[in-house]
């Protein structure tokens, strides 16, 4: 999934590098609000988690399998700013220590998967969350829609970049349709897995899910009469 060197020309690569640097700069400020002084260890461990998660193969059938990209998942679990930082660090480590994704394409990859993947994911999540009942259980479906839309959004952005600074003259409309179509399929898988993962964390530790925090806090202490116990006595 990582864009390698040479797919986009030098000016486009440098331009996306500048966009990525500006975005990550904003994220560095924003993350302090989400995680206060614990940012470094927590974001580091969550980045490691995302990296490990991408190694889990989800069998699709007929011998093929896919893996999670994790942009929308990171946004739902740790918030948009920390999510961008986490994906950025994963891409940096993959690019520099694993030669996965070109060094000149690092800015492009951070822009596509970090800024757009996490950003679109978070905005969609917040929009869907506001439409659903104010319960922690609403986070999983909201995260699913976020994942479903953020993957084709990143693919569409890549097609746009390729049309501007790509190495080949391609029929833009046809390629856009093919890329978005294919990534909607990937997005469906991403949506199902993201919803299942977020659902499982919300069920056990809703306090750890950033997107669920306003809903968890909204719950007030209540006294419930245990009727079954009363009947038995």
């Amino acid at each position: 999934m990582h864009v390698p060197d040479g797919f986009l020309d030098a000016p486009t690569s440098i331009a996306t590098g500048v966009v990525a640097a500006a975005g990550v700069g904003l994220a560095l400020r924003g993350a302090r609000k989400e995680l206060d002084e614990r940012t470094a260890p927590l974001a580091g461990l969550v980045a490691t988690f995302v990296f490990a998660t991408q190694m889990v193969n989800f069998p699709v059938g007929a011998g093929t399998s896919g893996h999670l990209l994790g942009g929308a998942l990171a946004a739902a679990l740790v918030g948009p700013w920390t999510g961008i930082l986490v994906i950025t660090v994963v891409l940096l480590v993959q690019g520099l220590l694993f030669a996965d994704g070109g060094l000149t394409a690092l800015g492009t990859n951070i822009t596509l998967m970090g800024l757009i993947g996490v950003g679109v994911g978070w905005l969609v999540l917040v929009a869907v969350r506001s439409l659903l009942p104010r319960r922690p259980a609403s986070i999983a479906p909201a995260a699913a829609v976020a994942a479903l839309l953020s993957v084709p959004a990143a693919a569409a952005a890549f097609t746009l970049l390729f049309a501007v600074g790509g190495a080949a003259d391609i029929p833009f409309g046809k390629v856009l349709a093919a890329m978005v179509g294919w990534h909607v399929v990937i997005g469906i898988g991403e949506a199902v897995i993201t919803a299942l993962v977020v659902g499982s964390v919300v069920a056990t530790r809703p306090d750890l899910v950033y997107a669920a925090r306003p809903l968890v806090r909204a719950r007030t202490l209540e006294v419930r009469r245990n009727t079954t116990a009363g009947d038995a006595a």
Partner: peptide, 20 residues
């Protein structure tokens, strides 16, 4: 997939708590 996803959920909780 639900089994794999739950294991990823558990991994998140473990990693986050390890960070804390």
């Amino acid at each position: 997939w639900p089994v794999l996803a739950r294991s990823i959920g558990a991994l998140f909780i473990r990693s986050f708590e390890r960070g804390e």
